[in-house]
């Protein structure tokens, strides 16, 4: 089996992990900067690479490969679907687990994370991988080449405002997570204080990062955010919608605090405290400081 990986350089080492498990005979990777991965061939695209470029280069190169693998990041989900449509190959997105016999068998989440579906496709095919459960696999490429592709640009990029990720929550042992039960951005201060007393990382629901922008995107837990697996997940003022819940499914213990005794978070918690977080958190801080 010959595999072609298409990925930004940051995600590439993680993407190699699930692909290696399929024991490919030859692995080539197309990326945008040098990356410590043990592939047979690393192709580094130079210059300003837009999604149109990724699609053009990868579709050109894909002939003769059995598996085309990408990370399930927002950009690469677009690229993956376009390559598949252009080349007439089957495409499975957001793959969490994969195995191979004659066909590829891939698992992915569905129904907001309430379900897990198993899909089989014939090779050659395109898969995008949900990388949150994989460890990077590092090494060094057997050969390297730089390319300066000329691409047809249907979409023009006017400006990029990048942000550097602060944390990788997938490694955190203790997490204090907040939802819209938090009323004002300033109130994050008490949450920070609690987190520091517990040696915990702070996480949130999607509205807190995406709509309100109180915390950076990489702290949002869930289907479209990070999947975490701490020993303890403390959910404060979170309703427990499935898209969020799937993000902490693998937590060892879940404690939640919500004013509403009917909140669905109660059904997915080990311990459910029915209380106002504005009363509970200061009391907990006080108790922790007293010790």
């Amino acid at each position: 089996m010959r595999a072609l990986l298409i990925s930004d350089s940051l995600n590439l080492p993680k993407l190699l992990s699930p692909v290696s498990e399929l024991k490919p005979s030859y692995v080539e990777a197309i990326t945008n900067a040098d990356s410590p991965v043990s592939v047979d061939r690393l192709l580094i695209l130079k210059g300003d690479i837009t999604n149109d470029c990724w699609v053009d280069v990868a579709s050109e190169r894909a002939k003769g490969f059995d598996l085309i693998a990408l990370p399930a990041s927002r950009d690469m989900r677009e690229v993956a679907a376009r390559i598949a449509a252009r080349l007439g190959l089957p495409y499975v997105s957001g793959v969490t687990q994969v195995s191979i016999d004659d066909d590829i068998k891939a698992s992915r989440l569905c129904f907001g994370g309430r379900g897990l579906e198993l899909i089989s496709v014939k090779l050659p095919s395109v898969l995008s991988f949900d990388l949150s459960a994989f460890e990077p696999s590092t090494g060094s490429p057997r050969s390297k080449e730089e390319l300066g592709p000329r691409c047809d640009r249907r979409m023009r990029v006017l400006e990029r405002r990048g942000k550097v990720a602060e944390v990788d929550l997938s490694k955190a042992e203790t997490i204090v997570s907040v939802g819209r039960g938090l009323k004002r951005k300033e109130d994050l201060e008490i949450i920070r204080k609690l987190a520091s007393l517990l040696g915990a990382e702070i996480a949130c629901t999607r509205p807190i990062s995406a709509d309100l922008k109180w915390l950076p995107e990489e702290r949002h837990v869930g289907m479209t955010g990070v999947r975490v697996r701490p020993r303890l997940y403390l959910a404060l003022g979170i309703s427990g919608q499935i898209q969020h819940v799937v993000g902490f499914r693998d937590a060892e213990t879940v404690v939640s605090v919500n004013v509403d005794p009917e909140a669905p978070i109660g059904e997915v918690s080990d311990y459910f405290v029915i209380a106002d977080l504005y009363e509970f958190v200061p009391k907990l801080i006080e108790a922790l400081e007293r010790k």
């Binding site: 569905c110 994370g113 496709v121």
Partner: peptide, 13 residues
């Protein structure tokens, strides 16, 4: 291209 969904099950803990 064809996809075959062979199984869907609940993913709850």
């Amino acid at each position: 291209p064809e996809l075959k969904v062979s199984e869907i099950r609940a993913y709850v803990r």
